[in-house]
Amino acid sequence: MPAASSLKVLVVDDQLTMRALVRSGLQQIGVTQIQEAADGEDALRMVVERPVNLILSDYNMPKMDGLGLLRAVRTYGPTSKIAFIMLTGRADTDLVKRAAQFGVNNYLVKPFTVQGLRGKIEQVFGALT
């Protein structure tokens, strides 16, 4: 049963507003160690330098999208075990299937609730304390 405060999470989204809302949701469930990146390239650079436990990533982003980030993370040894939850739109079923092929751990459909966010993280890590 991991403590939410021990989780290191990287939030990746090109919209500042969405990053702020995800950060706020994470804080409400007790996560305190939160980093942010605005695209897949920045995110990849950050996790290579400072590994995290979980990447919460949007799909549609400039430079490198969420699927590109997932593939890059999974193919590089030191980052290959990082849990990855993809934030998707309502109609993105094909995206979820492709992400599953590349080893995504879970997905969260936007607009999401804090309870929904917590539920998806707990499906990956077990109940949070």
Partner: peptide
């Protein structure tokens, strides 16, 4: 408010994408 804002941000994101 925050649930509402998440909905609004999503509505904006769909348009932007």
């Amino acid at each position: 408010t925050e649930d509402a804002m998440r909905y609004g941000a999503y509505a904006m994101e769909m348009l932007i994408n």
